[in-house]
Write a protein that binds this DNA or RNA. Structure first.
Lengths: 183, 183, 183, 183
DNA sequence: AATGAATGAGCATTCATTCAT
DNA sequence: GATGAATGAATGCTCATTCAT
């Protein structure tokens, strides 16, 4: 029951955070959508920020699991990279607004001076994984390229939101892969 | 005199919007910093949003002018592209937070259903300019690449803010250019 | 107009703080009583606590003025002491609840770590004045007695509130004076 | 077992009420400190106020017992008075904040319109005891003096909290005794 | 042009208390 | 006896905006 409510709240929050920004969504609204009272929500999460954190981790974990599954099936660095880039673009374009929430929460936590270590480590792990793939694929400067690939995806999430229709996701995947593997 | 006050407000707003997010900066604060009363500010700008718009255009215009000047001195598409990419990275890394405001305002205007023709045209002009350079440089799929280049820069602005130290801007310029020109 | 509102708020606050405790009186209530909106109240005072501070000083100043006037008319240390003790008891018994607010605010400021020099000095000045009178009257240990006299008044304010009917203020004045001047 | 929990709750509550004010200490906090659930606490006490009442009586009883023991050993009214005053000052200065809780609870109960009778009787008994000692010691107006002595102690509890360092407790005892016995 | 007093809706959070289990 | 999930009312405070002067 408790677990249920908690999950219901997280899901309601995610749905709302995906539509509007962190500051635009009120706790009241989340509670209403989850079918709990405001007090009930605060019984499960000590603050709006902590709720956002829970939402973030809930879906980050899920995303990491999905990514892992997809990549296991791929052979060789280039193929794995292709799968990775494909998954990243798919995620970004299918969860446009959710991605925005991720970036937004990222910032909010920075502002609170929380967590710098954890973020850095998480980002580092992520970057190193991509760097490894690029190195195995024989790319020069794999570190820099890994960083730029991540930037490209993050920026795409942003721009695709506003400029969509201009470019197809499939084309974007293909060109990105070509660019990133360029010798 | 009127002109002066207006400009002073815009400058104060920019400074604050460069440090904290749109919603975190209050009109009161902007007015105080500009040395005007709140009423005075609203005399010049009908709303906070319109002020943000003015700030945005003020600096966008300036940025376009600067970019134009720099690019005029460059010969040939590749050289011009090099100059352009260099200028974009410089701007982004030297005005990290300001860039965030640009993206933020971009969104705010979307929310208001104000993504008017004017803006689309601006973005289109920007993309076309880059697309033209890439085409002249003999790159395949110049349209997609132009979009991805812009995405890369936007994402870099975001990520560089949090992950800086990982990658040098100069290296980022070089690799980006190599990738974007990759045949 | 502004001054008017400010004063009206202070007066409304005082009236309420005299009836119920600091934490029991809500800002909303004060605003309503003063005929202002909550926002209006916060325009004049940045926080509930700062409003309380203003109330405190408003009446402290008034009390000091009144006390000064009364004491000027008295000759000789004993006579001045008699007048002082009389005024203190009168104030305390005529403004029972107000006195409670003073003590309460005193505490609140302590809690905020705001017991600044200013306050210590005020208390010191007060104690020294009484100490001086007692010394001039030839009392031993005038410092300790001054402190105990103040304590007695403060405690009387408290106890008189609950136990009144037991003791007449006039008798209390007379005995207090006798005790404090005891050789 | 039931008894144990009850006592544990009372002790936890006292400890917290000694540090912060009645309204600042939450039921949740008391429960946590006592190692009970909130529901468990409410199982033993129907409301926060009733818990406070229990705390109050628990310690009042203890205090009366201790005071009784100490005074039994003293001979003659003056000696007994000396012991009493000494014990009162010691208690007040060693349990500064606890004393505040007593006064605070006193008020809270007044506010609830509860108990006026009981308080009055308790206070009456207390005052009469002191009055008796003073009368036996040959003091004039023993009733008024008893009241003023109690006021002095109550006020001292308050002021000592803020102005300590100014006066030593031992000196305060001595002077108080001298004053109260003054003929 | 400019001031700043005033508004009102909105927000995150707290907390004593209830109740099904 | 005991738990802890849930409630709902209350609270201090923020802020873009309006308007009389």
């Amino acid at each position: 029951m408790a677990r249920d409510t908690r999950t219901r709240i997280i899901e309601a929050a995610l749905e709302l955070f995906s539509e509007r920004s962190y500051h635009e969504v009120s706790v009241e609204e989340i509670a209403r959508k989850a079918g709990v009272s405001k007090g009930g929500l605060f019984h499960h999460f000590p603050s709006k920020y902590e709720l956002a954190k829970a939402v973030f981790f809930h879906y980050l974990t899920q995303w990491e699991r999905e990514l892992g599954e997809v990549m296991e099936k791929a052979d060789g660095p280039e193929e794995r990279l292709r799968v990775l880039v494909g998954a990243m673009f798919d995620f970004v374009s299918q969860n446009q607004k959710l991605y925005r929430f991720f970036l937004e929460f990222y910032e909010e936590s920075l502002k609170r001076g929380e967590w710098e270590e954890e973020w850095r480590e998480m980002a580092e792990r992520y970057l190193e994984m991509i760097e490894g793939l690029l190195r195995d694929a024989g790319v020069e400067n794999p570190r820099v390229r890994a960083f730029l690939l991540v930037s490209l995806i993050d920026g795409f999430a942003f721009d695709y939101l506003f400029l969509d229709g201009n470019v197809s996701v499939e084309e974007a995947k293909r060109e990105t892969l070509r660019m990133v593997l360029c010798r």
